[in-house]
Structures are given as C-alpha cells and as structure tokens.
Design a protein around this nucleic acid. Structure first.
Lengths: 343, 343
DNA sequence: ACGTCTTATGTCAGCGCTGTCAAGTCAGCG
DNA sequence: CGCTGACTTGACAGCGCTGACATAAGACGT
C-alpha cells in the first residue's frame, strides 16, 4: 500500500549513479571545501539526471541545522504583512528552507512575549529568527535571543542597527523626498499626520520630513497632528487639520492607512482630494489603490525586505565579508492625490 | 561549542524515566491502540515532567507521515488571506504540524499550476493540501491530487462538495439574509454588484440574493452590474448604477472590496452613504472598517474556515464518523452603511 | 629520502523516531 | 485442560543524511 512511498531519489542513489561515496555527494550538496571540480561535475550531473532533492527531515535530524527559520510578526492591522511573507517565503523556497510564522501581539508585555518565544523554541528546532516591526526594535527580545546564542535578522529596525544583520529603508530620506515633492508642487502650508510613537519609523519619518522642510522652505507653515497609524487616527487628524481655519494645502500622513483616514475625513467634510487638499501616504500598501483618487505615496520594497532578511539569516555561513546592514531603496510613487499649486 | 546542542529530552529519556520501552512511549504519543491505562499514565507523567516534545524531523524521517501540510492560495488581492492563514496556523500549531504556504497565480493555466504542484511535491514530503478559493473549485487540481492519492480538504468550495472533506459557509443563505435585511429596511429598488464569474461563491451569492428577493418582495426592482470582486469594478458598477436616472436606494456588492469601490463612486458622484444610498458588502474583511461609514456586511468566519480545513486534514486518522462536510455559520454585521427608508 | 602539511575522498556510527516482528499475558472455550 | 485469539509490551533495524575520523595522494622543505 505504501510501497510506492515516494520514489524520491536519495543521496545514496546519487552516489551510486555518480560512482562516488555518499559523503562526497553530501559535500557537493552543501558546498563544502575540498571537492575537486571533477567530482563536483560528476555529482552535479547525477543530481540533475535523477532530479535529486535533499530530504529536509533527514538533514535536520543528522546535522546541526534545522533548515527552518521563524518570522516574528504582528499581523494585526499591518498592511505589509503579506508582502513581507511573500518575500521571506521566496528566499526560503530558493534555499530549501522552511519558514515558520509566529504571530505575536505587539501590545503584550515583554514577559509574555518571551514566554511565548521560549515555547516556540522548545517545540521546534529553529536556525534563527526574523524580527519584523515592531519587534525589530524590541531590546528585550534581542537580549533574550543573544543570551541563547540564537541568530536573528531584523526588518526595518530603527535602533541599534549594528546589533544584528538587518534590512531597512531610509525612512527619513523617503519622508524628505515627500517634503521636497510637496514643496516643489508649490505647497507651503503643510499638515503632518504622525504615526505611532512606538514605531521608530514614525519618528524617523517625522524628523526627515521636518528637517527637509526646514532646509528647503524655511518659510513654510507646518501643522502637526498626532496619530497611531490607524484609519481612525487619520480621520481624526484630517478633521483636526482641515476643520480649523486656514487649512493646509497638503497633508503628509505617516502611512497609507492613516492617509486613507484623512481621505475619509475629506469626504465627510466635503473637501476634494486633490483639488482642495493634496495628500501623501507612506508604504505603497494595497490600500493606496483602494482609495480614490489613488494615493501618492512612497514605496517600500517590502517583499524585498522580507526576502533579504531571510537571505541574511540563511546565508550566515556563506555570506562572508558582505555587509550585514542592507539599506534598500525607496521610491516616490506619483499617483493622483497631489496637485500642483503653480497653475 | 555545539555541546549544549539543545537539551531537548528525547523519547529515550522519557522511556528511561517511565521505565518502559521507547516503543511504548511512541505508542502513547501517537495514541495507538493496545496501550494499558497504567502504562499511559506512567508515560504521560514522564512526558509532563520532562517537558518532552516529539521531534518533527525524526518523526517524519522514520514514519510515513511528514506532519506537514500545504495551503494552496492566491494572495493576490484577496483580503481574507491573512485570516485564513491565522486559522490554519493555529490548527497546525495545536497538532504540532508544519504549514507550508504555496502561493499560486489563480489566473495561470491548469498545466502550469499542476507543474508547480508537482515541483512542490517533489521538494517536500507533504501529508496533504488545503485548497483555498479559487483552487477549491479547480477540478484539474482535484483530479491530479486524487490520482496521486494525496489527501486534501477544501475551503469554501462551491462544486462537488462531497468530493473531499471541506468547510464552507452558506453563501446563498447569507446573501438571502442581506436581501431580507434590505427589504426590511424598506428598500424596493436595489442594485446588485456581482462578483467574478470564476468564483462559484459569486454565483451562489447572486442566486441567493435574487431568490430571496423574489420570494419576499416580488415587486422589487433589481438592477445588476457586472463585477469581478475588485475595487475598480465597484467604482464602475457604482457609477453605472447610480449615474443613471432613477437610481437604486440600496446596493449589495458581492464582496467588501467592490463595496468599497461603490463607496468611492458615491464620493465622486457626490452621493452620500447611507443618506442617499444604502450599501452592503460581503466578507467582513478589514476593508469594512477602512471605509466611512463602516460597512454593513456579512461576516464569514474565515479564520475558522482555515482552522477547520486544517483540522480535517490532520485528523484524518482520528476523526472517525465525524461529518466530512462542515458548514460554518455566518452573521450579518450591522454597521453604518444602510439606512431605513421607513422614517 | 623522510617527515609534514594540504587537498581530496571514503567509512561508519548515529541523529530521534516508527514499522515490523516477536513474545509474552490472560480471557474464553471446546 | 490445553488452545485460540484478543490484548500488551519490547527488541531492533533503519528512515536519509551529516559529523568525526581515517585514509590516500601529491607538494614541499630539509
């Protein structure tokens, strides 16, 4: 019944076909040193012919590595989660790794987070962790991991970037570009909807925005509103900013979600975007095209962030002198929510 | 260096502590038959004391099962993906299973889908698949899987439900409830924004809605618009429905996303929701609370669907006479996008 | 010519578990 | 009272791979 039990060729099959020892095949597969080009060629040929794929279970049982990494994130209300996942998965697939998702509640106490982590660790062998925001800035988790000598990489950390391999975008520069863009469109009275003070990224975006404005248009008026990255915050901020006298001609919201909120406030107030007020978001999440007009925003290469973070973790062995901190580029996505005042 | 190499207790440790053979521990862990209560008690005590957790890698290497299942879905534009994932993950975690995500492009040809599946199968041992929409209605995939005797369960299938274990909600009944609700609010001129004809669910929703209207308010006027579940479709449909003379007083869109599109069309047309037109969506996805006013919609217990689908797959052994087709309840979520005409 | 180091390949045990088979125990039964 | 068959437990090989170690063949220095 189970005799057909997966015809998958084994390492031994490859060895037989190539006329070498099993260990040699293993060496080739793992890219170990001291393998002659000739032997490698023979083995590679046999592998290709048989369509051999190493068995993960056997590898992790026999060796020190588990070929499994874990992604720590909070799916709650985060629009980039899927893209992050996609990127990380891709990198894992490419390297024959498993990816485990660990969905934690970012608002939970550090103790309960660590407890959960402990549970995770004792339930499966893990080669390392990817820390997604806001865990990428959680020093308690980093301490805990380091203490246990567990490797980890971080996505979009804002603090202690040299503490681990990490990938990020330059939030401040990106926000600065938005500032530059709005100023170039003639805006001089600008509203700013801030993000959660718990996210370092929110602070970087604010600072980058403000600094750039001060640099290129010191005469500009700025009005800030507090926020927390949520849709409702955007609504409130939008009402606060636009309901008062002398409203700004443009608003920059720290993420797309709160920008969508601002847009809704506009709809409620009978204000037209972009005719009456221009609007910029941040993230280029799927939300940016679920509002009308489509949102001008900054694209973060989120799936690339996920992919690179996974790659950094996986390639610890191979990756040698490569820089451990990777900054990825962002780009301003011009859509329809900003209008020029110069005409 | 690697001497501390995970203190995880092994089956042998448990056996020693309990004074029984390793095989007996294995029997208890796997809930096999022919184990005396006495032995089970001893073993359970030892397991608890040691905090023993079976090693997945060793289990799958030694046994026939891999303790890994795969979830086939298309993340593209689907708002329920994360919830589905969460549910499936939870069930897996609970049973010490691994979950692999396979993200396929639903618009690809069946050949390329099957090719991809083949690749997936030869790269990892898999105990089975969960087919999410629209793959849950793909007979080519089902044929292929059955041919290879690979087990699978389906989420929200619309055709051949008895063909495999599956979980679903009664789309037709849910749409009928929306119909009833709108009629009870006094609406008699109603618009319908249809979903993708490729999704069986879209057809069920339409039929359920129409049938119920015919039953309880045969005098009602219905206007249909084609759609494809997308935001843009909602915009187009909304404009078509509301731009013409004698517009409907209420609109039912086949999913939240296109409902959001309708809402945008309203904003563009200067039509107020719900004052000028009432609006219902379907899914209760995140989007329902990312529009203003919040969307009245039908909640599908998506994460439960995921969880149950995984459970059905995992418990094939244990689950005996249990029904293989599970229908989960839906519920109408009344928010702010519908108004009563009776006052 | 001989030891020594580097390179290249092979042998073999064993990771932690389960499948198979064997070996017991004990009830019921002719 | 011995025998069948349903239970209950254990011994042991081996899943597919890698780590540790052994071995062998040049390269090099003295």
């Amino acid at each position: 019944m189970q005799s057909d039990h997966s015809q998958r060729p084994t390492l031994a099959d490859v060895a037989r076909k190539a006329g070498v020892s099993g260990k040699s095949v293993s060496r080739v597969v793992n890219g170990e040193a001291y393998v002659s080009a000739e032997l490698k060629a023979k083995v590679d040929a046999a592998i290709a012919e048989l369509g051999y794929v190493p068995d993960l279970a056997a590898r992790s049982l026999a060796g020190a590595r588990s070929f499994t990494i874990s992604l720590l994130l909070d799916t709650n209300g985060q629009d980039y989660v899927i893209q992050l996942l996609e990127g990380a998965y891709e990198a894992c697939k490419l390297n024959s790794y498993h990816l485990r998702i660990e969905n934690l509640d970012a608002t939970a106490s550090n103790e309960s987070l660590l407890e959960r982590l402990d549970e995770v660790m004792r339930h499966s062998r893990l080669d390392g962790f990817i820390l997604a925001p806001p865990f990428s800035d959680n020093t308690a988790i980093m301490d805990w991991l380091e203490e246990r000598q567990v490797r980890f990489t971080r996505v979009a950390p804002c603090i202690e970037r040299e503490r681990s391999p990490c990938v990020f975008v330059d939030d401040a520069a990106a926000a600065g570009e938005i500032a530059q863009y709005l100023v170039s469109k003639g805006h001089r009275r600008i509203g700013l909807v801030n993000g959660s003070p718990r996210h370092g990224a929110a602070i970087a975006r604010r600072t980058g925005f403000l600094d750039k404005i001060a640099e290129i248009a010191p005469d500009a008026e700025l009005v800030e509103a507090t926020g927390n990255f949520r849709f409702e915050d955007g609504i409130d901020a939008g009402k606060a900013l636009l309901g008062a006298g002398n409203p700004p001609t443009a608003i920059f919201a720290a993420n797309d979600r709160s920008a969508a909120g601002v847009m809704n406030a506009c709809a409620q107030l009978g204000i037209s975007v972009p005719d009456d007020v221009s609007l910029c978001g941040f993230d280029d999440s799927w939300l940016a095209k679920l509002v009308w007009p489509y949102l001008t925003t900054v694209r973060q290469p989120v799936s690339d962030l996920g992919r690179e973070a996974a790659r950094l973790l996986i390639e610890k062995d191979t990756g040698e002198g490569a820089p451990k901190q990777i900054m990825l580029g962002h780009s301003l996505i011009e859509r329809d929510s900003v209008r020029s005042l110069d005409q």
